[in-house]
Amino acid sequence: MLPDGTYTAVIDRIEDGIATLEVDTEDGLSALETEVAELPAEAQAADAVLEVTIEDSGLADVTHEPDETADRASEAQRRFDRLSKRPPRDGDDT
């Protein structure tokens, strides 16, 4: 159970109309499940970044963070591209 407050969350997955959010707390990551219908329409996809407000152990407010979503996707792509490059072998020109 999450204490009342405002948190950053990322949609981990959506299955059978239920979204599982990874919520960033002071103690690390916590999982929170909610119905997809409670999320903004533009944020009903995996990896969307949200600002969520918890009150009385429930989801009180959800705001989509499109710029943060795009920034995280770009950073993940940069890491993937960097890791997918073949390291030079002995005798290769760099």
Rank of each mutant, 00 (worst) to 15 (best):
P3A: 07
T8W: 11
A9T: 05
V10C: 01
V10T: 15
R13F: 00
G17P: 00
T20L: 11
T20K: 02
T20M: 00
V23K: 07
V23N: 01
E26H: 02
G28C: 01
L29F: 13
A31Y: 14
T34Y: 08
E38V: 11
L39Q: 08
L39G: 01
P40D: 05
A41E: 12
E42T: 07
A43R: 07
A46G: 05
D47G: 05
A48T: 02
V49E: 03
V49I: 15
E51F: 01
T53G: 06
I54Q: 04
I54P: 00
I54L: 06
S57T: 13
L59H: 10
L59G: 05
A60E: 05
D61A: 13
V62A: 13
V62K: 13
D67W: 11
D67S: 05
T69R: 00
T69A: 11
D71L: 15
R72Q: 10
A73I: 07
A73E: 12
S74N: 14
A76E: 12
R78Y: 08
R79Q: 03
F80Y: 11
D81R: 03
L83R: 10
K85W: 11
P88T: 11
P88V: 08
P88Y: 08
R89W: 06
G91R: 04
G91A: 01
D93S: 11
D93V: 15
